[in-house]
């Protein structure tokens, strides 16, 4: 059951991620990205991270991506026009990327043997209660700092958005 669920959502995630990259229209990319985020949320649930799964859907898929789609609608962004890429990217981009992926997979394979497995219910410390407790004890300072970060981001967004008026 675990394997089937993992494979289904991993395939959805990878196909959607490929779609994000190959689609020329930004809104198709955005919808595919929502697909990636949704399937990652399911994988988080399989890993026992229920709070993070909910936060993933609410914050990422529900708020950040709505913002993206909103901006795409607002600018009425059209499909990307074909353009000559820089020589370096054309020549070295794909091989280097495959090398990076190969390196990552190699290290993962070396560091994590097949015997280390994940099964649903193997870790139950990801409840809202556990995350909240850690957030307000061990990670209190970073938490407060992020709140200031968000405040600055709000101010920055407002300043940037106002500037175009004059």
């Amino acid at each position: 059951m675990d394997v089937i669920l993992f494979l289904i959502f991993a395939i959805i995630a990878v196909v959607s991620a490929i779609n994000v990259v190959v689609q020329t229209h930004p809104i198709s990319s955005a919808v595919s990205l929502i697909g990636v985020m949704g399937s990652l949320a399911v994988l988080y649930l399989l890993l026992g991270a229920e709070f993070i799964a909910a936060a993933q859907v609410i914050v990422y898929a529900g708020a950040v991506m709505v913002l993206f789609i909103f901006v795409i609608l607002l600018l009425n962004a059209g499909a990307e026009t074909k353009r000559g890429r820089s020589f370096m990217v054309q020549l070295l981009g794909v091989p280097l990327l495959i090398a990076l992926l190969g390196l990552l997979v190699f290290f993962v394979d070396r560091l994590f043997p097949r015997s280390v497995t994940v099964h649903f219910g193997g870790f139950s410390g990801g409840s809202a209660q556990a995350v909240g407790r850690a957030l307000f004890t061990t990670y209190l300072l970073p938490f407060e700092v992020t709140s200031i970060l968000i405040l600055i981001a709000i101010l920055g967004a407002i300043v940037l958005a106002r500037k175009e008026l004059d």
């Binding site: 991993a10 890993l47 099964h119």
Partner: peptide, 16 residues
């Protein structure tokens, strides 16, 4: 087989 090797998750992460 009912458990997924942890490397699969990490490989998926690397692919994405």
């Amino acid at each position: 087989m009912s458990a997924v090797p942890i490397s699969w998750y990490l490989t998926l992460s690397a692919v994405i």
